[in-house]
């Protein structure tokens, strides 16, 4: 708009800068805390300007929390969730949109409902399932008498067991079990023009070839958007890994490790709280998702708006 509004422009900048300060101050203080020594960080008039201990603190926090293995684990889980979610979302939406069968709407609604209840709300029973992921089938077989039948015929006692605690599968699968991406894909598939499908069929393409050669190349922006959102979502998981992983040394994730660094009576045994290490670790842990969001900003915003999380 071509208008001269010098006073309003100044006010706009003032308001925005003030807002930015509110947003940045906590992180700035955490950053400053990470650059100080143990004495400095606990001295009463707090430093507002960084010291020179950042590298030393980072190294110490890294070694203390054994972050090497944990970053690897987190990366594996985040990649697993991203790939799993995108693959599942894509093929499920494809089957729902392009195939004609009875019960299509029923299946659509069954998947749709999973959006309603986040993992946190059903955490206790989901944990019980993770302890043995085959419980549902075992119970169904017991109830319907199939176990009894198998036992009578072959003499084999049916006891299915698949423990997911302390495993990457256990960390990944429950996080994949929602419909988030399916709807993003469904919306996209609904915009594919009829002519494209007819042309592909005319050329003799079956459904799978059509999916692979036409739809997937067209959905690259979808994939980028979904991947950004899911990576941040998986990286920042806290409650689920906290429960599923008891073997922190081998399967721990970085974000969960932060809870061990809270400087209270438990961690310091009544000594001086090690804020400088806690803050250094906090910085390291939040860096990768922030980098992804800033680098992939366009796709991130698109993904956020289209998936409704």
């Amino acid at each position: 708009m071509i208008e001269r509004t010098p006073i309003l422009n100044l006010a706009t900048h003032a308001i925005l800068v003030f807002g930015l300060i509110l947003i940045l101050v906590p992180i700035w203080l955490a950053f400053v805390g990470a650059t100080l020594t143990l004495q400095e960080v606990n001295s009463a008039p707090i430093e507002l300007w960084p010291g020179d201990q950042l590298w030393a603190n980072l190294k110490e926090a890294w070694a203390l929390s054994d972050f090497g293995q944990k970053f690897l684990n987190t990366l594996i889980v985040a990649t697993g969730v991203v790939v799993g979610k995108i693959t599942l979302a894509c093929i499920t939406a494809f089957a729902l949109v392009f195939f004609n069968f009875r019960g299509r709407m029923l299946i659509f609604w069954m998947i749709f409902i999973t959006l309603m209840l986040p993992l946190e709300v059903r955490i206790v029973p989901t944990y019980a399932v993770a302890a043995n992921a085959l419980t549902p089938f075992q119970t169904i077989m017991d109830w319907t008498g199939i176990s009894w039948l198998i036992n009578a015929v072959s003499g084999i006692e049916v006891s299915l067991e698949w423990n997911l605690l302390n495993s990457y599968t256990g960390l990944i699968l429950p996080l994949v079990a929602t419909a988030t991406g399916t709807f993003l894909y469904r919306q996209f598939f609904l915009t594919i023009p009829d002519e494209l499908v007819e042309a592909a069929r005319m050329d003799g393409a079956g459904p799978l070839r059509f999916l692979w050669d036409v739809l997937i190349p067209l959905s690259k922006t979808n994939i980028a958007a979904l991947a950004t959102i899911m990576f941040v979502y998986a990286w920042n998981q806290y409650l689920w890994p906290l429960l599923v992983v008891t073997d922190r040394a081998n399967y721990g994730m970085v974000v969960v490790q932060l809870s061990d660094l809270v400087p209270d009576q438990l961690t310091t045994g009544g000594g001086t709280p090690t804020w400088h290490l806690a803050m250094a670790a906090t910085l390291v842990v939040m860096l990768p998702p922030i980098a992804i969001v800033i680098l992939m900003q366009r796709w991130f915003v698109r993904g956020l708006i289209n998936t409704d999380k």
């Binding site: 992180i27 203080l29 920042n236 806290y238 906090t282 922030i290 956020l304």
Partner: peptide
């Protein structure tokens, strides 16, 4: 926008 990417426990700790 970027604070969206900060994990809740990291926010809590900071």
């Amino acid at each position: 926008i970027w604070p969206y990417a900060v994990a809740a426990p990291a926010v809590g700790l900071a």
